[in-house]
Computed example of a mutant assay.
Amino acid sequence: MNEPHVDIARAQEAQWLKHYYFSRGAFSLLWVALAFSIGLHSAGIAAALFVVYPAWDALANFVDMSRSGGAAANRTQALNVVISLVTTIAVIVALGAQGTHWVLDVFGVWAIVSGLLQLGTALRRWKRFGAQWAMILSGAQSALAGVLFIVQDHAATPPAIAKVAGYAAVGAIYFLISALWLWVGQRRAAAAQA
């Protein structure tokens, strides 16, 4: 039997994770809406959105890593923070050098690496919280999408922003499913205790 303080700590961590997943999903949905409504019509807005997406991922992973025991306890997230920051810089360089074609290559490599790191984080969390199957699928899908970005980087249509927005939309769905799954699990646990 677990000690009461261990159960309370686990419940607080699960609560944080639920809020984190909802926040990630909401941000991604907002990003997708901006990409499809404005980014398709403005190269400047599309460029800004390309830079913001990996920067947000770095920040979100950093905050989650910090709230979940720090870098030593969350090596996959620590690596994801670094990879996402490097990607942010690489996107800026690619936009200045070659435009959106190189951006898809950068996003492709990032999606592969960050997807595999997300998969690792989800597998580690599965042992503690369960409810990570959507994050496992998301990590695997991200890696696959990265390969497709690289293969399609020079295809004229749809525009690069639409390709990345589709990827972000699927990611948002996975984050929201994970948050809802944790919420349902918390409800069931509360009902079982009542």
Rank of each mutant, 00 (worst) to 15 (best):
Q15Y: 13
K18G: 02
F22A: 08
R24E: 14
F27V: 04
A33M: 08
A33F: 15
F36T: 06
I38K: 11
G39I: 11
G39H: 10
L40I: 13
H41G: 05
S42T: 15
A43I: 04
A43S: 12
A43E: 14
G44R: 13
G44Y: 07
A46N: 07
A48G: 10
F50M: 07
V51P: 00
Y53C: 03
W56L: 04
A58P: 13
A58G: 13
L59P: 09
F62L: 09
F62A: 14
D64H: 15
R67M: 05
R67H: 15
G69Q: 15
G70T: 14
A71R: 12
A71L: 07
A71F: 13
A72V: 15
A78I: 11
S84K: 10
S84M: 09
L85N: 08
L85G: 06
L85I: 14
A94V: 04
L95P: 08
G99T: 13
G99M: 08
W102Y: 07
L104E: 06
D105W: 12
V109H: 01
A111G: 04
V113K: 00
L116N: 02
L116T: 00
Q118T: 12
G120Y: 09
T121K: 14
T121W: 05
A122Q: 02
A122W: 02
L123S: 03
L123I: 04
W126G: 02
K127H: 13
F129R: 04
A131E: 11
A131Q: 14
Q132V: 03
W133H: 10
A134K: 03
A134Q: 01
L137D: 01
S138K: 02
G139V: 01
A140D: 00
S142N: 09
S142M: 06
A145M: 00
V147F: 00
